[in-house]
Design a protein around this nucleic acid. Structure first.
Lengths: 201, 201
DNA sequence: CCTACCGATCGGTAGG
DNA sequence: CCTACCGATCGGTAGG
């Protein structure tokens, strides 16, 4: 990961990470194809040729952004999945974790790029991302199984999981940070929408 | 294909419509920014400058594609909404109509471009599209109201509608025409997922 | 990480 | 709708 040559004391600005962050934001806002190297360089205060000191190609930047996106989501949801709560509480915690990455300031650009720009990766890169995505979605499939076993849901099929992923990922299209609903509220409402109101709060 | 100049009797090929169709397919496959005028010209058997005889700019092509997309979906779902069946049957017919436009050969490119490329429109064009989209989604809000009145669903809020739109529109990401599920089956399964199994088939 | 640059390609146009 | 073309911009590189 780190490409430092001389190891500076403590406050070394990590320029590579800066580029990934700026690229993520721009890929999210304008799309991969409409974002230029000059846009990215500009955003981090470099000249147009300099990002290539950190990345060989524009595609490599996209790959870094997308991998960062799926890594963050996977870690956050995996943690929620193993919190040892009831099936319903675990599920709601997973919803919250996913939405937090998708909509929160920390991860939204990476997540949005993952969802909408992955297709611009080259086939081999895309295959690697798809493999990670499949592993991620397996976590959700298991969560649905647990809910069904607990009698909280009737359908735990793969298509049901895809409906769920749709409801979740579509929030990117309409959520506004300054809107009237918090991320936690949205997670709770989705849980209620899918499972009905909890019997005992 | 045919490049006739003189006006043929009845079978005049509508070149403008050809361009819109080709543009829709390419915008869907590669995205707006990654699609070139030369791609589009090529797809309809023209030279690179000729599409500009039919459209002033590339943006105008995108606008035509997106308007075609929302026009088709709106018409199809409006027809299903007024079929005079029971709330549940009407709702399922609306799901089917929406998915048919989204996933079927006739409309998928237009619909996908509408969902994913609209943001490349200029502000004024985008505002017009958003207005049409709002009108469209109002139909769904009413459908949810009817379902709630009929006791088939607990939550008919705006967020519930957005969850529904997410589940629907996300199908674009995973549906395969040669897969094991038909469009009608997906519509039925989504109805069951949201409303539970019907009491009397 | 900058300067200076290159070949390729892009959206669009003039004139027929 | 084609031919011929243009200015702008793009991803990327050489050499420091």
């Amino acid at each position: 990961m780190a490409a430092s040559k001389t190891k500076p004391a403590a406050e070394e600005p990590n320029r590579r990470a800066d580029i990934v962050r700026a690229a993520g934001r721009l890929f999210h806002e304008k799309g991969y194809s409409a974002t230029t190297i000059r846009d990215i360089a500009n955003a981090v205060g470099m000249r147009s040729g300099s990002p290539f000191y950190h990345f060989k190609t524009k595609h490599d930047m996209l790959r870094a952004v997308v991998l960062e996106g799926i890594g963050k989501i996977d870690a956050a949801v995996a943690k929620a999945a193993h919190s040892g709560k009831s099936p319903r509480a675990t599920f709601e915690a997973m919803l919250r974790a996913h939405l937090q990455q998708l909509l929160g300031e920390q991860g939204r650009d990476f997540a949005a790029a993952l969802l909408h720009e992955s297709r611009h990766l080259e086939p081999a890169e895309l295959a690697a991302v798809v493999a990670l995505k499949d592993r991620y979605e397996t976590m959700w499939q298991k969560a649905l199984q647990d809910l069904k076993r607990a009698g909280l849901i009737a359908d735990d099929s793969q298509v049901a999981r895809l409906f769920l992923m749709g409801a979740l990922n579509w929030t990117v299209q309409w959520y506004r940070p300054d809107g009237s609903r918090t991320i936690a509220q949205i997670a709770r409402q989705l849980a209620g929408f899918l499972l009905g109101k909890p019997q005992r709060p």
